[in-house]
C-alpha cells in the first residue's frame, strides 16, 4: 500500500512537470524560463526524496541534497546575469 502510494506520488510529480516544461520551452522571456527551471528543480527534489524513501537507502537522499545545493548556485548565476543584462539595457537605452 505504501509502495503504491509512493509510486503514485512520483507519477503525480512527473505529470506536474509537463506544463512546467512547456513554459520552459515556450516562455517568452528569460525570466519565465528561469522560474520554470526553479519549479522543475523543486519537483525533482520531491521526486528524488520520494524515490529515496521507496528504496530505503540513505545514499539516495544525498542526491537530492547535492542537487538542491548546486542547483541553487546555478540559478543564482543565471539570475545575476539576468539582472546585469536588464540594467545594461535600461542604461544603454537612456544614454544612447
Amino acid at each position: 500500500m505504501t509502495n503504491l502510494l509512493l509510486e503514485g506520488m512520483q507519477w503525480v510529480l512527473v505529470a506536474f512537470s509537463v506544463p512546467t516544461l512547456v513554459r520552459l520551452l515556450l516562455g517568452p522571456t528569460a525570466a519565465d524560463r528561469l522560474v520554470a527551471l526553479n519549479i522543475l528543480s523543486g519537483l525533482a527534489l520531491g521526486f528524488l526524496v520520494l524515490r529515496g524513501v521507496q528504496e530505503g537507502r540513505a545514499l539516495y537522499l544525498d542526491v537530492a541534497l547535492v542537487y538542491d545545493i548546486f542547483g541553487f548556485l546555478g540559478f543564482l548565476a543565471i539570475a545575476r546575469f539576468l539582472k546585469d543584462r536588464m540594467t545594461d539595457e535600461s542604461q544603454g537605452g537612456e544614454e544612447e
Binding site: V63, I78, R85
Partner: peptide, 28 residues
C-alpha cells in the same frame, strides 16, 4: 541564455535518469 537554461534542465533530467537506473553516485 535560453540555451543555457535548457542545458541546465537537460542536466537535471539526466541526473534523474541516472537515479532511476540505480546509480546514485553517478547522479550525485
Amino acid at each position: 541564455l535560453h540555451g543555457v537554461i535548457a542545458l541546465s534542465a537537460v542536466s537535471l533530467v539526466s541526473a534523474l535518469l541516472f537515479y532511476i537506473l540505480q546509480a546514485p553516485d553517478v547522479a550525485i
